[in-house]
Simulated scan of single mutants.
Amino acid sequence: MAATDELPIIKLGPEDAMAGLVLSTEARWNQTEEDWRVFLREGVVFGIRTGILLVATAALLPYSGNNAWISMVLVTAGHRRRGLATRLVDACLETARKNGLTSWLDATPDGVAVYGPLGFTPTLQLRRLKLAKSTQAAPAPPAATLDALRARDCRATGFDRTALLTAFAQRSGSRIVATRGSIGLIRDGRTARHIGPLFADNAAEALGLVQAIARSETGPLLIDALAPQAAFLDGMTASGWIIERPFQRMRFGPATTQAEELPFAVAGPEFG
């Protein structure tokens, strides 16, 4: 038995938010301490320690309708390729199974090779885009209400994510904005502001809102767009956004809901 097989899996608590942030920062992810506190407060986060050092994590975040999101699957560089991530994802899946939950995740290309053999099946693809901003800022687009965002989010995902969206909206620096038939949320990240979720009646309206947001911001921006929204993606890249990486959305278990519309951007691969 390898030494890492003997390391117990533990459940993390609120006091572990900063230790989790160390792991996601090492991986150059965009999460903040507040993001970690969402997982620790609303879901369950499994971890593995060597002594007092947190070396691996995975989180299960429940949503409504018997659904849950698996994310924050992180292993520090010196402990990779030892099976820790698989053990932690198995712990998430076992917890989901006991609670009758269908599990979802957004995987990197490397992650697809790991999650496929575990029984996850692909659904749709995402594209992460980044825009490096100048220091010129224009007035922000009109503000919208949390209730309006929640209603649109529920139609597009089939999930009630009131707790998540409320946590986002209550953060310092967060904004919910809308123009015509589009609405979206902007929040702080560790290295860049993040746009999403984003909903619109068509690609032109979605592009218009993103362009208005970009004109009102002074730093780098990230957005996780749905690949099937091809006209939106084309418009984004034509206006200077660069595709950084793809994600593959995957599901473990039966489909539980039917969305009424397709969003243009999601809350992030860690949140869905």
Rank of each mutant, 00 (worst) to 15 (best):
L93K: 00
Q125I: 09
T256N: 07
R128I: 05
D16T: 08
R97F: 09
A167N: 10
A265Y: 06
D201S: 14
R152V: 11
R150E: 14
Q31A: 05
A227T: 14
V210I: 13
T237Q: 10
E205A: 14
T50Q: 15
P263L: 09
P228G: 07
Q125A: 10
H79E: 15
A59G: 05
R81C: 09
I48Y: 01
L226G: 04
T162W: 15
T86L: 09
A267R: 01
T25E: 11
I243H: 08
D110T: 15
A140D: 13
R87Y: 06
A259F: 05
P254D: 14
P197T: 03
N66S: 13
A19Y: 07
G47H: 02
A203W: 01
G100S: 07
A56Q: 02
F232N: 04
L23C: 05
L131C: 06
G189L: 09
R215H: 09
R193H: 13
R161K: 07
V44G: 00
R155V: 13
E270Q: 07
L126D: 06
A96P: 02
F120R: 01
D153N: 09
L60Q: 00
T76W: 06
W104G: 00
G196H: 01
I9D: 04
V45K: 00
P8E: 09
C154M: 15
A169C: 10
P197H: 04
T50K: 12
L12R: 00
G173Q: 09
R37E: 14
N30R: 01
A17F: 03
P139N: 04
E42W: 01
R41G: 04
M250T: 02
L126I: 08
I10W: 01
G184C: 11
H194V: 14
G240P: 07
A143D: 11
R97I: 13
V112F: 05
A107G: 11
A255G: 15
A85W: 02
K130D: 10
D35Q: 03
R171L: 10
A3T: 15
T179A: 14
A192D: 11
A230Q: 11
R155E: 15
T191I: 14
F199N: 02
I70R: 00
G51N: 09
E270T: 08
R245Q: 13
A137F: 11
S134A: 12
E33V: 12
N99H: 10
E42T: 01
T25L: 08
W241H: 04
I70P: 03
S182E: 05
G47C: 06
S174E: 11
G100Y: 00
T256Q: 09
L93G: 00
N66Y: 07
T32V: 06
D147Y: 06
L262A: 12
I52D: 14
L7Q: 02
F232A: 06
A255F: 15
P117K: 03
V45I: 12
N202R: 06
S239E: 13
M72P: 01
I183V: 15
P117N: 08
S134H: 12
T95V: 14
A163H: 08
R249A: 03
R128H: 07
V75I: 10
L149F: 03
A151S: 11
S172R: 14
C92S: 04
R28T: 14
